[in-house]
């Protein structure tokens, strides 16, 4: 008698579990679909925020960037993707020598999007963009200069950088 009860119970429980599974798939069936119709919605689709499309240098509206040409990103890069060309200039007022960024070269052809450069940057000067259409006709076009033409280093408040550095 007990085994018969268990038999009936197992059948009822089985049916209940099957119905639960069918409920879940039905909810999925009615859910809005997540497929992106890519070439049709080109320019309209929103990539998710953390997507690592391409490395960019953040410029403000006065065409200033935050890169001090310290070279930490270049050293951290496992593939030698980043190349920083800098020069030393002498400050006219104080006479101190100062490193200034000339070119920030980024080769997207060798980048593995590991995020080591962005996470190690002390100035938050570089960031990821969500742009993903990288195809070009020539390999040399894969090397991009990230700093804008004529951009300068962001001038900080006199007291602020010292406390920050310390």
């Amino acid at each position: 008698m007990k085994s018969f009860c268990n038999y009936i119970k197992s059948i009822v429980l089985g049916i209940w579990n099957l119905l639960l599974g069918m409920k879940i798939t039905m909810l999925n069936f009615l859910r809005p679909k997540i497929t992106e119709q890519y070439p049709e919605n080109r320019g309209k689709q929103v990539m998710f925020e953390r997507f690592r499309g391409s490395l960019t240098m953040v410029h403000n509206d006065k065409n200033e960037h935050g890169c001090t040409a310290c070279g930490i990103c270049q050293m951290n890069c496992p593939n030698g993707t980043i190349k920083i060309v800098s020069s030393m200039i002498e400050d006219a007022e104080t006479g101190k020598k100062k490193k200034v960024l000339d070119k920030y070269l980024y080769d997207i052809g060798t980048c593995i999007f590991c995020d080591m450069c962005v996470s190690s940057c002390p100035q938050q000067a570089i960031a990821w963009s969500t742009e993903f259409e990288h195809a070009v006709f020539n390999r040399s076009k894969l090397v991009k200069q990230l700093n804008n033409e004529g951009s300068t280093l962001k001038v900080k408040e006199k007291s602020a950088p010292k406390t920050e550095v310390a």
């Binding site: 999925n28 069936f29 859910r31 497929t35």
Partner: peptide, 13 residues
Amino acid sequence: KICAFFQCRIGPN
């Protein structure tokens, strides 16, 4: 189509 909808896709389009 129905298989795609159950898997949250659009299917042949």
